[in-house]
Design a binder for these strands. Structure first.
Lengths: 251, 251
DNA sequence: GTCAAGAAGATTGTTGACAATATTACAATA
DNA sequence: TATTGTAATATTGTCAACAATCTTCTTGAC
C-alpha cells in the first residue's frame, strides 16, 4: 500500500498540497488514485519531476506498491489539472508550458477571478467574509517587506482560496483550482521582490474596499488587473531566468 | 469490439457529436475510451440517458463488447465534460444540474467568451476570419425566421466553434468546449422562438462589427451580453417547462 | 561516418478474475 | 405499519497477465 506523504501535519499548508487545497469539498478519505496524484503533483510543482520528463506507469506503481490501474487513473487526474500531458500509447509527460501558454493561463485566470470577485461583491452574505479578509490582508502587508517571499505567497494562496470558496460557484471553483495549480510556480516568481509585493498589497487593499462597498464593477476590474500584473511580473522573471540560462549554455 | 455510432457520414455535424467537434486537434483515430465516451455523450445530450440515471460499468461494457477498463476511462472523460458525476464506490450518474448551476455555467461562459472575442478583435490575423464569419452570420439571419430552430442552433454552434479555434488559446478552447457540451441543451431552449433568434442575430452582427474594427472592449462587452441574454432566455424556458411539469404532476 | 532497416526490449492498452464496498430484499421487532 | 438489523446480491476498486504499439539498439549498406 501507499506510504503516506512526508508532509507537515494536516492543517499546515504544505507546498504542493494544492490539489487538496483547492478541490471542492474533498471527501475525508481520499481514493487511492487521488493519493497517488497528490504525491506526484508535489513532485511536479516542486521540480523533483522536471518539465518534459516522462512518467512511467510501472515505475510509479512499483514505488507506491500498487498496480498500474490506480496509477493510470492518477495520471488522468493530473492531466485534468494540466500538470501532465498524456499522448496515446506514449504515456504521460510533465508539461512544459511555453511562455505563450503561461500567458494564456493567466488571461483565463484574470477573467475568472474578475467574475469571482464580482460575485462576492454583489452577494448579500459577503459580510461574514470581510473580517477574515481584512485580517489576511493585514498579514499580507506585514510580510510584504520580508526578504523572503514564502510567507507572502502562502497568504496570497490562502486569500485566493477563501475568495474562490466564498463565490459559491462549484464549477468556477474547479476551474480556478486547476488553473491555480498550474500557475503557483509562476506566481512565486512574480512575487519574488519586495517591490512587487508592495504593489500586490495595494491591489488587495483596493479589492477589499470594492468588496466592502458592494461595487461589483470595481471588484471585477481590480481582480483582473491584479492577475494581469502578476502575470507580467512572472513573465518578466521567466524571461530573465531564460536569458541567464542561455548565457550560461553559450559560455 | 465497438459498433460504430449510427450517425451521419463524417463531416456532417451530427447532434451529440459535440465532444469531437470542440476537442482540440482531435487525432484522426480516436482511442477506445474516447469512442465509448462519444457514444455515451450522445445519449446524454439527447436524453436517452435521463438526468440522474446511474450508468453501470458492466452494462456498458457488455453492450459495446469491451471490458470494464475502457468504460471506466470513458466515464472519467465524461466527468471532465461535466456530463456525469462519479461518486466513490458508487459509480457514475448523469448530471442533473439545478437552475442555479446552469446559471453558473453560463456566467463562466460569458466571461470566457468575452476573453475569446477580445483576443480575436485584437489579433493581427483576424482578417482571414472575417469573411467566413460574415458568411455564417448571413446564414444565421436567413434561418432566424424559420419555424424550426434546428438549423439556427447548428449555425450558432459552428460560429462558436470557429471563434474558439481562432482565438488560439488551447486551454481556453478546452474549457469552452467542455462548457459548451454542458449547455447545448439549454442553448437550444433559449433559441426556441423566432423572436429570440432575431435578437441573437443582432448580437452577432454587432460582434462582427466590433471584430472588424479591432475594438477589443466592444467585442468583449457584446460577447458577454450575448451569452448572458441566451442564459436568461434559457432559464426562462426552463422555468416554464418546470411549471408545466409541476402542474401536470399535481393533476 | 551517416543513414536506413530490422530485431529486441520496453511501455501502454485491454482483459478477466478477485477483493472491498454499497445496495437491495427480507425478516424480526417495536 | 414503520423501522431496524441482517443476509444476499450487485457494483465498484484493484490486480496480474497478455496484446498491441512504440522506442531503442544493432547491423548493414552506401
Amino acid at each position: 500500500m501507499l506510504v503516506p506523504a512526508p508532509t507537515s501535519p494536516p492543517g499546515a499548508t504544505a507546498p504542493g498540497d494544492l490539489l487538496a487545497q483547492f478541490s471542492e469539498s474533498a471527501p475525508l478519505t481520499q481514493s487511492l488514485p487521488e493519493q497517488i496524484a497528490a504525491r506526484l503533483s508535489e513532485r511536479m510543482v516542486s521540480g523533483t519531476y522536471a518539465p518534459g520528463q516522462r512518467i512511467m506507469e510501472q515505475a510509479v506503481a512499483a514505488e507506491f506498491e500498487v498496480s498500474r490501474g490506480p496509477v493510470r487513473e492518477a495520471l488522468r487526474l493530473l492531466e485534468k489539472e494540466g500538470l501532465v500531458i498524456i499522448l496515446a500509447r506514449r504515456g504521460a509527460q510533465v508539461t512544459n508550458p511555453t511562455i505563450a501558454e503561461v500567458n494564456e493561463i493567466f488571461d483565463i485566470r484574470a477573467m475568472l477571478n474578475g467574475l469571482r470577485d464580482r460575485m462576492i461583491a454583489e452577494s448579500a452574505q459577503r459580510e461574514r467574509l470581510l473580517p477574515v479578509l481584512e485580517q489576511e490582508i493585514a498579514k499580507l502587508a506585514e510580510s510584504a517587506t520580508a526578504p523572503d517571499g514564502t510567507q507572502y505567497v502562502d497568504t496570497v494562496l490562502r486569500l485566493n482560496q477563501l475568495l474562490t470558496q466564498a463565490a459559491g460557484n462549484r464549477r468556477l471553483q474547479t476551474i480556478l483550482g486547476s488553473l491555480a495549480v498550474q500557475t503557483v510556480r509562476y506566481t512565486r516568481l512574480g512575487l519574488s521582490t519586495p517591490e512587487r509585493r508592495q504593489q500586490s498589497v495595494h491591489h488587495w487593499q483596493h479589492l477589499l474596499r470594492a468588496l466592502r462597498n458592494g461595487d461589483g464593477d470595481a471588484a471585477e476590474r481590480i481582480a483582473r488587473q491584479r492577475v494581469l500584473d502578476s502575470r507580467d511580473a512572472a513573465i518578466e522573471q521567466l524571461l530573465r531566468q531564460q536569458a541567464m540560462a542561455d548565457a550560461k549554455s553559450a559560455a
